[in-house]
Simulated assay, not measured.
Amino acid sequence: MRNTFAAVSALALAAGSAHAGGVERTTQSIAIIFETGNYAELTFGSVTPKVSGVGAGTVPSPLQPTPGVPSGDMAADYTQLSFGVKTQINDSLDIGLVIDQPFGADVSYPLTGYYASGSVAELNSTAITGIARYKLPNNVSLLAGLRYQTLEATASIPFIGGYTVNGEKDGGVGYLVGIAYEKPEIALRVALTYNSSIKHKLATTEIGGLTSTTPIETPQSVNLEFQSGVAKDTLVFGSIRWVEWSKFVIDPANYPPTSALVSYDNNTTTYTLGVGRRFSESWSGAVSLSYEKSNGGFSSNLGPTDGRLGVTIGATYTKDNMKITGGVSYVDIGDAETTLAAASGVPAGEFRNNRAVGVGVRVGFSF
């Protein structure tokens, strides 16, 4: 049953969490700490999004400058890597280390004549998370950890007066705390984890060589992850993830004062539900659905999506102390409207019928 669950948790990366709220690319799951004994894993994922729209309106105007003009695909493909290792110290204490890339963005509007043509933006992060799990006698575990995270960002926005900005890499520290309950005889586990926000101050060079410091705070989040056996060799699993994106703002000092470079009006809650099945001692598989509602209103020109519905299918092959998990995800990205002046209520771009495909592979070893 553990192998079946591994097939699921490994595919969160393949699902391409960047299509969830904000600039999220992983769910910051701590599932590795529940592996038996000593364990290490390496995960690779590749995501191919397709996000395009057209200029809104029928007659060119200051708020609708390119009606009917296609934006072209503005979301670049990207890859993800993560590594994790977990050690059992004794019957009560486990410790683990996870290295991943929790936040990211790759924006590149092609030159189509659309008002945002030529705009590019990139955000990269790396996080190193140390986790400790202390098991109490009553099947309850207490979880705690520290996270060191780096963040860097650049952007070039021709339609905002040729604005450019480069934010140098900065490090920040956060923490996680949680609690879990397990009932091994029915493969039941419920884990609740809180991830703190992390504050950064990027040394920034803006248009014309102006220098400044740009504060960025990656959002706090709460994960509820669960699984339970429902029949012989069959497991139901799922998660609920809340992220406070309404507090995430990138607003360099010399960006035009009418709005921030990046901001979000709403927090997000993402739901995942699936079923796993063990077919033999060597093979198990899983399928899951994920959903995040559309909030409406306007989306950022650098992230014109709103909500999503996805399906993930995966399988795990186990032999001796090794297990290999592979999977594929398809995500229907929610429709969105963009604007050049939110207060006007006038859309400048309309993005419809977009999608993403992700594939992922994870190799794990028990030792």
Rank of each mutant, 00 (worst) to 15 (best):
Y175G: 10
Q220W: 04
G174N: 07
D320L: 08
K86S: 12
Y39C: 13
A348Q: 00
S119Q: 10
Y115H: 05
L123G: 01
W283R: 10
G118P: 01
S196P: 07
D73H: 01
G84S: 08
F367L: 09
T214E: 03
F226H: 06
P158W: 00
T258L: 13
N38Y: 14
F237A: 08
G364K: 06
V23K: 02
V222S: 02
S108M: 11
G326L: 07
L176I: 11
F367D: 07
D94C: 10
L188H: 13
Y194E: 13
T269M: 08
A153M: 01
A348G: 04
G16L: 01
V8I: 09
I99S: 04
P256N: 11
M322V: 13
S156W: 00
P158H: 03
S46C: 12
F34D: 15
E185T: 15
V59G: 09
A40N: 12
V361S: 03
N124V: 07
T154R: 00
P304R: 04
A348W: 06
L309T: 14
V8N: 14
A343R: 04
S294D: 10
G209P: 08
S117G: 11
T234E: 07
L151Y: 05
E281G: 14
Y109F: 12
P102L: 03
I128K: 07
I131H: 04
G334E: 02
G171P: 07
V120E: 14
F44S: 15
G208Y: 05
S141H: 02
G296T: 09
V69Q: 03
I33E: 08
V357K: 05
V346G: 01
L63A: 05
S300E: 14
S228C: 12
Q101D: 12
V243M: 09
I250D: 03
Q149S: 01
K50G: 14
V120S: 09
T112N: 11
T312H: 04
